[in-house]
Amino acid sequence: FHVTIHVGDITFHIHGVSEEEVKKLEELVRRGADWREIKKTIEEIEK
């Protein structure tokens, strides 16, 4: 999957994300995680 996440003024683009990881990111966004937490999760996914 290709994912784009907008957190305030920050936009993250992630490529090659599995469905499971998409759900993890959706959950973070849904519970209102700040951009640092989302960035950390994205960095883990990209490894």
Rank of each mutant, 00 (worst) to 15 (best):
W35C: 05
V29S: 05
H15V: 09
L25V: 04
V3R: 03
L28T: 02
I38K: 00
T11V: 12
G8K: 03
H13R: 06
E44M: 09
T4A: 04
F12C: 02
I38G: 00
F12T: 01
H13I: 11
G8N: 08
K40Q: 12
K23C: 06
L25D: 00
R36E: 12
V17L: 14
E26A: 13
T41C: 09
E46M: 14
T4P: 01
H13K: 05
H2A: 08
F1N: 08
S18G: 09
T11N: 02
V7H: 08
K39T: 07
E21N: 15
F1E: 05
D9G: 15
K47H: 12
G16Y: 13
G8E: 03
K39I: 10
I14F: 08
R31W: 07
G16W: 14
E26T: 15
A33L: 03
I45F: 12
I45R: 03
I10T: 09
V29T: 06
H13Y: 12
D34W: 05
R30F: 12
F1H: 07
R36T: 11
I38M: 04
V7R: 03
R30N: 12
K24D: 04
I10K: 15
K47V: 10
S18P: 06
F1W: 07
E19H: 13
E21L: 09
T41S: 08
H13W: 06
G8S: 03
K24A: 09
I45D: 01
K39R: 11
V3F: 13
T41N: 07
H13T: 11
E21A: 14
I38Q: 00
G32S: 05
S18M: 07
E26D: 10
G8Y: 04
H2S: 12
A33W: 01
R31C: 04
E46V: 14
T11Q: 03
V17Q: 03
F12N: 00
K39Q: 14
L25E: 00
H2N: 14
H15C: 07
T11H: 11
V22N: 04
V29I: 10
K47W: 08
E20M: 13
H13M: 05
L28N: 01
H13D: 04
D34E: 07
R30L: 11
R36G: 10
D9N: 15
H15F: 15
R31M: 08
D34S: 15
K23R: 11
R30T: 08
E43A: 10
V3N: 02
H2C: 12
I38E: 00
I42G: 01
R31A: 07
V22M: 13
G8L: 04
V7G: 02
G8C: 06
V29N: 02
E43F: 09
H6E: 08
V7W: 12
G32N: 08
T4E: 07
E26L: 15
G16E: 04
K47F: 12
V7F: 12
I14C: 03
V17F: 15
I5P: 00
K47C: 11
E37C: 06
R31L: 08
G16F: 12
D34C: 15
I14H: 01
E21G: 13
L28K: 02
T41G: 05
K23A: 11
H15I: 07
R36I: 10
W35Y: 08
I42S: 01
I38W: 07
I14V: 12
V17N: 03
V17K: 02
F12A: 01
W35K: 03
R30Q: 11
I42A: 03
E19Q: 10
I5V: 07
E46K: 09
K24Q: 12
R36H: 10
I14T: 02
E19C: 05
R30H: 09
E19V: 11
E43K: 08
G8F: 04
L28M: 12
K39V: 08
R31T: 07
V17H: 02
E19D: 08
V17A: 09
T4Y: 11
G32E: 03
K39A: 11
R36K: 11
T11K: 03
V7M: 11
D9R: 14
F1D: 04
I10E: 05
I10N: 07
I42Q: 01
I10M: 14
T11D: 02
V22Q: 06
V29C: 09
T41I: 14
T41H: 12
E26I: 14
H6P: 01
I5C: 02
E46W: 14
K24V: 13
W35R: 03
V22G: 05
I5A: 01
D34P: 11
I42D: 00
E44R: 07
R36N: 12
L25T: 00
E20G: 08
E20S: 11
E20I: 13
E27Q: 11
V29Q: 06
E27N: 10
H15L: 06
D34A: 08
R31F: 06
K24W: 10
E44C: 04
S18T: 15
R30E: 09
I10W: 15
R30S: 10
D9M: 13
G8R: 03
R36M: 12
V3M: 13
E26V: 13
E27V: 10
H6G: 03
T4V: 10
V7A: 06
E26N: 11
S18Q: 06
A33I: 04
I5Y: 02
I45W: 15
L25R: 00
R31H: 07
H6R: 13
S18E: 04
F12K: 00
S18K: 10
F12V: 04
V22S: 05
E27T: 12
F1A: 06
I45P: 01
T4D: 06
A33C: 06
V3S: 02
V7S: 06
V3H: 05
D9T: 14
K47A: 13
K24G: 04
E27R: 10
E37W: 04
E46L: 15
D34F: 07
W35A: 07
R31D: 05
D34N: 14
E19T: 07
E20C: 05
L28Y: 05
E37D: 10
K40R: 12
K24I: 14
I38C: 02
E44L: 09
L25H: 00
H6F: 10
V7Q: 03
F12S: 00
I10C: 13
G16N: 15
V3K: 03
V22K: 09
E27D: 11
I42M: 06
E43D: 12
E21D: 15
R30K: 11
T41Q: 09
K47E: 10
I10Q: 14
H13A: 03
E20K: 08
E21W: 15
L25F: 07
R30I: 09
G16D: 09
E19P: 08
I10R: 15
G16L: 12
R30P: 00
K39G: 05
G8A: 04
I38F: 12
F12Q: 00
K47L: 12
I10D: 04
